[in-house]
Design a protein around this nucleic acid. Structure first.
Lengths: 170, 170
DNA sequence: CGGATCGTTTGTGTAGCGCCAACCATTTAT
DNA sequence: ATAAATGGTTGGCGCTACACAAACGATCCG
């Protein structure tokens, strides 16, 4: 439909930079819009956006250690404790000691947690409609799918891996 | 691929809501991952993630008033001042008084600003590769496109619009 | 003229979060 | 067995990103 026909001189072979744009800032921007509006909708459920993120992650990863959770959530371990305390206080989440290593806590969603998460998602329908209004339903599904896949990918924890510098000149 | 076989017919036995998931939390999650890693990469350029968001918005909206900027950025007007001060201090952005209403400041990207933004985007290539590693290049383009369109949509500023309550039972 | 609006400055308050340090319980290494 | 490392927990400190309020100059408008 809308080919951004920008600078179509003779169009030799390359849509060169055209693709130098990064989605980081847009992600930030959109996430903020969503989060701001979500807060008010989530409040009556006693949840904050960050709790939703945690619950969502937990729904997908089943039972994981707090450390691992801290890893995927990318927040400091000590803060995970507080986060889980909130959730456990409402029995949305469960900490059980791992049988093979009893130092570890295996965190998992309780059925109440799954239920609450659902309610929250349901409550967010309006917000999403508002924020993603410019997108067709099918596009929203695509977006969801992309986000889900992108987030489910294991992120490198900053391992040495100095094979080749990725931050080249560009 | 996965048709979210949304409730067709009477749908007797099934993965009922399947499509009740919201992208909000995922957006939050992914944005956080991206932002954290971006910070370190952006630092040498004297920029913070939030500056990037502003610059990106400005690149698309051309010259707009600070108020409008506050609106799209969804941050308080007084904070926009500080944000712009940062950017103007490095002449990445320009405030000119509007000719038709001299109270207003028309904010726009300077050429230096556009250049810096590009450098930043370029510097972010590695981060994006890392964070969106689970996505194919084509998918990343799709993601970018969706995000761009979603963010460019005018967001309702909370106008009355009480036609029908969108927060129905669900 | 007087009231509303845009931008600016200055404060104040709060939430989110990193980080450090100390402390159990437990596992693993010596 | 004793020492060291690890997972979780608590408490505290500090910083950053805001929102929110108040007061002011410039400007527009009725």
């Amino acid at each position: 439909m809308f080919h951004a026909v920008r600078k179509l001189g003779h169009m030799p072979a390359l849509p060169v930079e055209e693709s130098e744009h990064r989605s980081g800032p847009l992600l930030d921007h959109l996430a903020r819009r969503m989060r701001l509006r979500s807060e008010s909708v989530l409040a009556p459920l006693g949840l904050r956006p960050r709790h939703l993120v945690a619950l969502t992650v937990l729904r997908e990863s089943g039972g994981i250690s707090q450390q691992a959770l801290a890893g995927t959530l990318q927040i400091d371990g000590t803060n995970v404790v507080g986060l889980l305390n909130d959730l456990e206080a409402e029995s949305l989440v469960e900490r059980r000691r791992s049988p093979e290593d009893r130092r570890r806590h295996v965190v998992s969603l309780t059925t109440a947690g799954a239920k609450r998460l659902r309610e929250a998602e349901c409550a967010l329908a309006g917000v999403e409609d508002e924020v993603l209004g410019a997108l067709q339903p099918a596009e929203r599904d695509t977006l969801y799918d992309l986000l889900r896949r992108a987030t489910s990918g294991r992120q490198v924890i900053c391992a040495g891996e100095s094979g080749d510098e990725p931050d080249v000149a560009c």
